[in-house]
Design a protein around this nucleic acid. Structure first.
Ligand SMILES: [Mn+2]
Ligand SMILES: [Mn+2]
Ligand SMILES: [Zn+2]
Ligand SMILES: [Zn+2]
Lengths: 160, 160
DNA sequence: ATTGAGATTGAGAATCATTATCAATAAGGA
DNA sequence: TCCTTATTGATAATGATTCTCAATCTCAAT
């Protein structure tokens, strides 16, 4: 999966330069953390990991960097309803599982990625989008589909 | 549409009594406000309207009442991504347009209800839910589908 | 190498929606 | 009426995120 930071850094370097931004150490640290995990970390969680790489980094900069990365289209920002934003690196399009949605456990906040059945889902959504755009004169830019429920472990734990 | 507060009050009275709760003036005020609008008000907005009916009501009680109503299944709580929760009375199931989803303008925060194309949407969702539940041992309780984009007015306003 | 304009940073303060606290009040059954 | 409990409003507290600002860093032009 993960093939070390070099390749990533070169890639990111280019993206940053291209936008006139600098790929600084605090920014690299955020990208490294995100690239090494498949979890959906909060800013605070990212900050804690970042400090292991670059102890000087501040929380503000982590927030600023995440905002920048989202704006650059490198990172997705999600709201899973637990009061804090969560972030996920957008991996290469070639990557299977690239495009996915989420199952969110309302008990333990676990998040499960899934990419099955997405094709039909997207198909219907884009059809719906088209019809709605038309009928309500509304230009749809993005959609959110999320399933909330109980994961296996929590179900076991909760059924007495 | 709206046939005065009497009918509603009687109905709510029953629901409250049944749960061992009291239908007090501050609570009635919240219900009245919600029943008179088709907008998706925030707690603060509801509070401002409530004070016109019952000037003594406090913001805390509005929050508490809304929480109670959501928990009783009388009100939906939504997060449209603008940093504040929004609330909507769940109207009678007989009511057309009862079950609907939302288009949210990312510029002016306008919210458009729609109930067209919901049938197919729900059909696919429930099929997906079944397959996902199965594959990931995940019991889905609810789903969120939201479209974000630009409403007609904002598009006009923004295209220079 | 030096310099200067502008980008970036970290620490801490500020914001702002929501919750928690708590003493006062209201409800309503015995 | 009396007593137990639910409910309330004012206020403080919380917690994630954003803002402020002086210090530091980059890097292209000298
Ligand atoms: Mn994911
Ligand atoms: Mn609605
Ligand atoms: Zn769980
Ligand atoms: Zn708009």
């Amino acid at each position: 999966m993960y093939r070390g930071p070099r390749r990533g850094h070169a890639w990111w370097q280019g993206r940053f330069r291209g936008c006139g931004y600098r790929l600084t150490l605090p920014r690299q640290a955020v990208l490294d953390v995100l690239s090494r995990t498949s979890k959906h970390l909060s800013a605070e969680e990212i900050y804690l990991e970042v400090r292991k790489i670059n102890p000087g980094s501040g929380l503000s900069t982590v927030y600023r960097t995440l905002e920048l990365l989202v704006q650059m289209g490198l990172v997705f920002k999600f709201d899973f309803g637990d009061g804090r934003a969560r972030y996920e690196l957008i991996r290469n399009t070639r990557d299977k599982n690239h495009h996915h949605h989420h199952l969110i456990c309302i008990n333990c906040n676990r998040v499960i990625d899934y990419s099955e059945f997405i094709r039909e889902e997207e198909e219907l959504l884009s059809k719906t989008e088209k019809e709605l755009s038309n009928k309500y004169d509304f230009k749809i830019k993005k959609h959110i589909v999320q399933f909330y429920g109980l994961c296996g472990e929590c179900r076991k734990e909760l059924e007495d």
